[in-house]
Simulated scan of single mutants.
Amino acid sequence: MSDLTIVEQSVRSVLKYNHDLTLLQCTSSYPTPDNEVQLNVIRTYQRMFPNIKIGFSGHDQGTPLTLAAVAMGCVVIERHVTLDKEMKGSDHIASLDMSELAMLVRDIRRIDSAMGTGIKRIQPSEQTFMKKLGKRLVFKHSFEKGSKITPKDVMAKVSFKTADDVPLTDTEWEFRELQSDVVQNENVKIFHFRSVSESSDSSG
């Protein structure tokens, strides 16, 4: 039950004496309507207080919004737990039962595992699929030996990986001369073209 000014003043006051502080975003109503949960305040706290732990205290129903908070980087989660949601008291209806708690713990662990390192790289499980589902450069049409091929004559398409495939990003050239016949949708290979030195010698 605070606005940002109160939160900032409180945090600054505590940090004067204790840096072991965790700040949780929370809306104190039971249950909290989804549009008042204000998950983006988590981002605000992370920017304003980069040196303390940020978490989420949820009074919304179910687990999806808590899982979203975890995915946003919250390192502490607080949820109420009840044995019966129909018991007397304002917070029972917004609490998790034991099965929901178990599901929440399981899913948080999945999210933690799925977050990864932040470095984009080909994953081990992708290796097998890359051979048959990865994109390669292929010829748009059939061409005869000696044809002048430009980047407009090739396209990226799902195709089996083969030896000597031209890299998918290799399209920064004006034209290349074929030294063998090729057929439509055939993978573009390094040996399909005359080398730069060969082309220069023949033109000179």
Rank of each mutant, 00 (worst) to 15 (best):
I54N: 01
P64S: 14
F139I: 00
N35Y: 12
Q179N: 15
T63I: 11
G58A: 07
D112N: 15
K157T: 08
S147V: 01
E172Q: 08
V196P: 04
K120M: 11
K189P: 00
S28R: 14
Q38H: 14
D201H: 13
L23T: 05
T169Q: 14
T171K: 08
Q123E: 14
I93W: 06
T44K: 06
G58W: 03
I93D: 03
V196Q: 12
L67F: 11
R79S: 02
K88T: 12
S147N: 02
F56S: 02
A102P: 00
L101G: 00
G62H: 08
S125T: 11
D164I: 09
G73H: 04
I119G: 08
S13R: 07
L83V: 05
P124R: 10
F49H: 07
I122S: 11
I122E: 08
S95R: 11
T63C: 09
K145H: 03
Q9W: 08
V14K: 00
A156L: 06
V105E: 13
D34E: 14
K16V: 07
L137I: 05
Q61I: 09
V138M: 04
D201R: 15
H19Y: 08
I111L: 15
S13E: 05
F193E: 03
I122C: 12
E172V: 08
I77Y: 01
K152P: 02
T63A: 11
V70M: 02
A102K: 12
M87R: 12
S10H: 01
S180P: 14
P50I: 09
D153H: 09
M72C: 04
K140M: 03
G62V: 11
